[in-house]
Amino acid sequence: MDPATIIGILLAFGSVFAMVSLEGAHLSSLLLPAPMILVFGATIAVGIASGTLKDFFVAIKALPGAFRGKVQPPEQVIEQVVGLAEKARSSGLLAMEQEADAVDDPFLKRALQNIADGTDGDELRVLLEDEIATRSKSDRVAAKFFSSMGGYAPTIGIIGTVVSLTHVLENLAEPAELGPMIASAFVATLWGLLSANFLWLPIGSRLRRLADLEIERMTLLMEGVLAVQAGSQPRLLGERLRAMIPAGTAAKNEKAKADKGKDAKLKEAA
């Protein structure tokens, strides 16, 4: 689990609350039900209106993933593929059927089953590329939904402020109440800006980034299993797949792997 989103959102709201406290104001002056209901309710409503109900349900289903952020590390994918290559060289491609039964990843399972069934390499590549493209479109629907809400929220906040100011103008005969009423009117704009920049846009960007990482993982698996089908030597296959990983990520994974090996040796020595 990668808690970056949770940490970032908490720090962002914490900064606002810290500012309010340092200014000597009260949090209750910001936590007004009426503008919050308008901003959050109307933002979600127009988000639904901008797409389809299916898009909305896809976005809701993807929301927990934005906070969990579970993505298989590239080095782990490479080790898995290299293990498959070693198995194929020792037991033949038919052994991939047993490996397919042992994995939980549907994408890898289908790829291995097709290898065991003798599917042509070019046809298998087309099949896997189509599946990757479909997954990319599906993942980006959720990201687009939250990003679009991030665009609507500030404007909806302004609408709430205009509505409240209209109510203020109706009560000009009561000067003593104008100050609190005007202050309350701008709370809607505040929540529009806060929800857009502290919630919707970060969640949309997070889902888009997770989608990119998942596509990279699936692409790595695709190239790996196709090389296994072609009979690539396991060590060379591992080097080839590592060359596909960005330098910073590869170095980090190699360091983690080396540290893990050192710890294992220390335990054996003890």
Rank of each mutant, 00 (worst) to 15 (best):
residue 161 T to H: 02
residue 35 P to N: 05
residue 22 L to Q: 07
residue 230 A to R: 12
residue 265 K to W: 07
residue 3 P to A: 09
residue 7 I to W: 10
residue 129 E to I: 01
residue 70 K to T: 13
residue 201 L to Y: 11
residue 158 I to R: 05
residue 129 E to L: 06
residue 72 Q to V: 15
residue 145 F to V: 05
residue 153 A to M: 02
residue 257 K to G: 07
residue 52 T to F: 11
residue 37 I to P: 02
residue 226 L to S: 03
residue 26 H to K: 15
residue 165 L to A: 04
residue 41 G to S: 01
residue 189 T to N: 03
residue 46 V to I: 07
residue 22 L to M: 14
residue 104 D to N: 14
residue 6 I to R: 12
residue 101 D to Y: 04
residue 66 A to Q: 07
residue 103 V to E: 08
residue 175 P to H: 05
residue 198 F to K: 04
residue 81 V to Q: 00
residue 73 P to W: 06
residue 241 L to Y: 01
residue 148 S to W: 01
residue 88 A to R: 01
residue 112 L to Q: 03
residue 179 G to N: 08
residue 49 A to F: 05
residue 94 L to H: 04
residue 63 L to W: 00
residue 152 Y to A: 14
residue 236 L to D: 14
residue 124 L to F: 02
residue 260 K to Y: 14
residue 198 F to P: 00
residue 146 F to D: 03
residue 18 A to E: 05
residue 211 A to W: 08
residue 38 L to N: 01
residue 4 A to M: 10
residue 125 R to Q: 12
residue 108 L to M: 10
residue 220 L to P: 06
residue 41 G to Q: 00
residue 214 E to M: 10
residue 232 S to I: 09
residue 41 G to E: 03
residue 102 A to K: 04
residue 90 S to W: 00
residue 48 I to Y: 06
residue 152 Y to W: 09
residue 147 S to G: 13
residue 195 S to K: 00
residue 219 T to H: 12
residue 30 L to E: 07
residue 21 S to F: 10
residue 62 A to K: 08
residue 162 V to A: 07
residue 140 R to D: 09
residue 136 S to F: 04
residue 21 S to C: 06
residue 50 S to M: 11
residue 216 E to K: 11
residue 250 A to V: 07
residue 125 R to W: 07
residue 56 F to A: 06
residue 169 L to S: 11
residue 216 E to N: 14
residue 201 L to H: 13
residue 80 Q to G: 13
residue 208 R to F: 12
residue 59 A to I: 04
residue 180 P to G: 02
residue 8 G to V: 06
residue 113 Q to M: 09
residue 204 G to P: 04
residue 183 A to S: 10
residue 61 K to M: 07
residue 31 L to Q: 03
residue 230 A to Q: 13
residue 213 L to C: 11
residue 65 G to R: 02
residue 98 Q to F: 11
residue 47 G to T: 02
residue 254 E to G: 01
residue 51 G to F: 05
residue 268 E to Y: 01
residue 65 G to K: 01
residue 128 L to S: 06
residue 222 M to N: 06
residue 139 D to A: 13
residue 131 E to T: 07
residue 267 K to N: 04
residue 156 I to A: 05
residue 256 A to L: 13
residue 116 A to M: 01
residue 129 E to C: 03
residue 55 D to Y: 09
residue 30 L to G: 04
residue 46 V to K: 09
residue 245 I to S: 05
residue 49 A to I: 08
residue 233 Q to E: 15
residue 33 P to E: 04
residue 246 P to H: 05
residue 174 E to M: 13
residue 16 V to Q: 00
residue 254 E to A: 15
residue 215 I to A: 15
residue 219 T to E: 15
residue 126 V to N: 13
residue 11 L to A: 12
residue 255 K to F: 14
residue 152 Y to S: 10
residue 60 I to M: 10
residue 27 L to A: 13
residue 253 N to M: 13
residue 232 S to W: 11
residue 52 T to N: 08
residue 242 R to Y: 07
residue 169 L to V: 15
residue 33 P to C: 02
residue 64 P to Q: 06
residue 29 S to Q: 14
residue 246 P to W: 09
residue 236 L to E: 11
residue 69 G to I: 05
residue 227 A to D: 08
residue 11 L to K: 08
residue 205 S to C: 07
residue 129 E to T: 10
residue 192 G to C: 01
residue 264 A to V: 12
residue 73 P to L: 01
residue 17 F to R: 00
residue 118 G to Y: 01
residue 78 I to C: 05
residue 28 S to H: 06
residue 47 G to W: 02
residue 203 I to K: 02
residue 131 E to P: 00
residue 266 L to V: 08
residue 118 G to W: 00
residue 178 L to R: 09
residue 178 L to C: 02
